[in-house]
Design a binder for these strands. Structure first.
Length: 271
DNA sequence: CAGCAAATAT
DNA sequence: GATATTTGCT
């Protein structure tokens, strides 16, 4: 029996796919922009062809191959792939809303504050809508008196459930005076590419970092159960905060396995 | 433009 | 089937 164990272990080891064999997380898929540029989305259903514009008044009849090298970003008015709201991204969203206050938490502002490259107002609006519904639902059933039903947290909404909801967000009919408007650390002005949602294997945007390659258990981070080694190469906050708020000092924290680490990442002092 | 409900797409 | 996006309306 012991031998068996070492046996399968050996085999297991042997059959372990090499990193090179694994899906090259950042590659493979045709570059999203390229794909959309060519309008060659995934072979899906019969996508209706909406009035294909007569292209450019080219003298010839073939399209201009410079389409890609055109310099101008084609990815501007074309349909982007579905954005996938990963917990981290959602966290940013929540934090942004939390710090803006319900009153200023409108799609436009949120989007700007998040300063996530590639995120559009529509994205936020859509997500915000669902998020609000989620909050409402929660309140609704949390008032259950004598309820013997509420047993823990039924994984209702996967995404929202795993987000450290700031606590308040409950729309209290509180028309209190708004506190000082926090200046917007317009990080969006940075030409730096922060975390740009990238297209996944199909056409879904997913986050570049935080990609878990493990095939063990479930790929999805349903609940924090996987104890991964928090090793972030690009995680340096060298400067011991001295009082100045650096927009680039984002410390995207990883939630602890079972300890809800509610750490606000924005330089907030409000509330 | 923001918010919402429903439909639609992936 | 779950989600995100879009649509229509206010």
């Amino acid at each position: 029996m012991k031998e068996d164990e070492s046996n399968w272990f050996s085999k297991w080891e042997d059959e372990l796919p090499l990193p090179e064999d694994l899906t090259p997380l950042s590659q493979t898929l045709i570059t999203p922009d390229l794909a959309i540029a060519f309008d060659i989305r995934t072979p899906n259903h019969h996508q209706k062809q909406p009035t294909p514009p007569p292209s450019q008044p080219n003298s010839g009849e073939f399209d201009s191959p410079e389409l890609v090298a055109g310099g101008d970003e084609p990815a501007r008015t074309l349909k982007r792939p579905r954005l996938v709201w990963t917990p981290q991204l959602h966290k940013r969203f929540v934090d942004a809303v939390a710090h803006l206050g319900i009153k200023n938490a409108v799609p436009k502002t949120i989007m700007q504050l998040m300063s996530v490259d590639g995120l559009t107002r529509e994205n936020v609006a859509s997500h915000l809508q669902k998020y609000r519904l989620y909050l409402k639902r929660m309140q609704g059933l949390s008032s259950g008196s004598g309820g013997s039903g509420s047993a823990g947290d039924p994984v209702t909404d996967h995404l929202f459930a795993s987000s450290p909801v700031p606590a308040h967000f409950l729309h209290q009919g509180r028309s209190n005076s708004d506190h000082f408007m926090s200046y917007v650390p317009v990080a969006a002005l940075q030409h730096h590419q922060q975390m740009g949602p990238v297209v996944g294997n199909h056409g879904q945007l997913q986050q570049p970092r935080y990609g878990q390659i493990g095939h063990f258990g479930s790929q999805r981070n349903e609940h924090p159960f996987v104890n991964r080694q928090n090793q972030q190469p690009v995680h340096r906050v060298g400067t011991p905060v001295h009082g100045s708020v650096a927009p680039a000092a984002y410390v995207d924290d990883l939630e602890s396995a079972n300890g809800r680490k509610v750490l606000t990442l924005f330089p907030n002092g409000d509330d």
